[in-house]
Design a protein around this nucleic acid. Structure first.
Lengths: 231, 231
DNA sequence: ATTTTATTTAACAATTCCGTAATATTACGA
DNA sequence: TCGTAATATTACGGAATTGTTAAATAAAAT
């Protein structure tokens, strides 16, 4: 799956190991990192260290049900914004109301159809990206960058830019006059779990410099690269 | 109208009491005043006394469906400008055409996600001045799209287009110069509860490209597809 | 029920992009 | 200015993504 962002982490909570296995299999196949707990109490503990982006949890569980678990999680500040999706045997209304009351983001009805599940999870996580990914347009000098259509213009004339190049330019331009060393750029643009050789950055910088006026991207020898506003 | 200030009033119309309850619960929690009707006939009556700012109505109902109900309401001067939002099982269904035809302001796809619902309602009420043009017609360059009769012409000559193709073209053209990845297109065009493999989109894009001039639909590798206004 | 059309899937081809490594060039300090 | 270390440049192969076609299902129409 994708791109530049760290792989989302999903915590699975269900007392049925078969369900866990089914979920884990399908989610990891899609590139998600998963951890699992067999009941609500374990789930709260595990969540603290695993720090999931999204929790997929059965409503009915021994020891402590999903609703109560969600309530506890929501009280902890670090899970205030974590997405919680419930798994429920059928769309039973009482449950649904209670679930949304504790801040559920969606509920998924069993039996689980893997494709549907994945699609719901993607949709949920996508909201996240859209929120944090605020700025869609950057204007610096004659350069105009528009994230909604991945377009860049130099003095009005459009530049064709493949994805990685665009992302690199976008990142640098978003943080003008700030130096980044190659490691930092790899982490922010390529993503934390992507291993590529540092020199790869040089090549992309080169390609950018072919397209936009020289002076914008400065090299600071021994330090890194920077998008400079000055001439 | 749109003088919705102190407490906006929302009329809920659905034959399923559980849905009514779910909606009423979430909306009143947000501070809206609600009333409800179980079918279209009741709805018209109740609307006269309740005078809602917004009506949230299922399309499929016994006795009288949502489309017909909306048509009747629109004929009454006091509801000329009342916002009407439809609930529908899938996106971009035939009903959408009919719905917008009778002046629907938005439609919301089931299953209902309370957060999304609330935000749609807020957005609708926020619009002081109606942008009534829930465009039934789009003209971009030589392409002319008419939603009321599902017709597309290229430079005046009519194009035959099956439904999915049409919906895809319509969606892209409605949001020109904006990239969408396959997931987003599936969600917006196919609907949230339809699960087909991502590559299905490619095939439909291909078919569109056979019919309309090449340059309109651009591929942004690793990003998605876009309807481009440029040449 | 049969035929036709639309839609989805799957397989393979074509393309683009990215990462690497090899080499050239530049900047800087001694 | 020379040597060294760092960056710039180039070209190529592999990987990933998309294009295309055809066959399989599904839906609609007759």
């Amino acid at each position: 799956m994708a791109n530049a962002l760290p792989t989302p982490k999903i915590l699975l909570v269900d007392d049925d190991p078969d369900i866990i296995e089914l979920l884990a299999y399908n989610l990891s196949k899609e590139g998600y990192e998963t951890a699992s707990a067999l009941d609500g109490i374990q789930a709260v503990d595990l969540a603290k260290t695993f720090k999931p982006d999204l929790i997929l949890m059965d409503v009915m569980m021994p020891r402590q049900d999903g609703i109560e678990t969600a309530r506890q999680l929501r009280q902890l500040p670090e899970f205030k914004d974590t997405y919680i999706l419930f798994l429920t045997a059928r769309a039973e209304e009482y449950t649904e109301v209670a679930a949304f009351d504790v801040g559920a983001d969606d509920y998924i009805v069993k039996p689980i159809k893997p494709r549907a599940l994945i699609s719901r999870i993607k949709a949920t996580l996508r909201r996240d990206v859209q929120q944090t990914d605020n700025e869609t347009v950057i204007d610096i000098g004659v350069i105009h960058i528009n994230r909604t259509n991945y377009s860049v213009t130099n003095n009005g004339s459009p530049l064709v830019m493949p994805k990685k190049e665009f992302e690199l330019l976008y990142f640098l331009a978003k943080n003008p006059n700030k130096v980044f060393n190659r490691d930092e750029l790899l982490e922010k643009v390529w993503g934390v779990d992507v291993y590529v050789v540092e020199r790869t950055v040089d090549v992309h910088i080169r390609k950018l410099r072919e397209k936009i006026p020289e002076h914008y991207i400065k090299t600071l020898k021994g330090v890194g690269y920077m998008f400079s506003i000055e001439e």
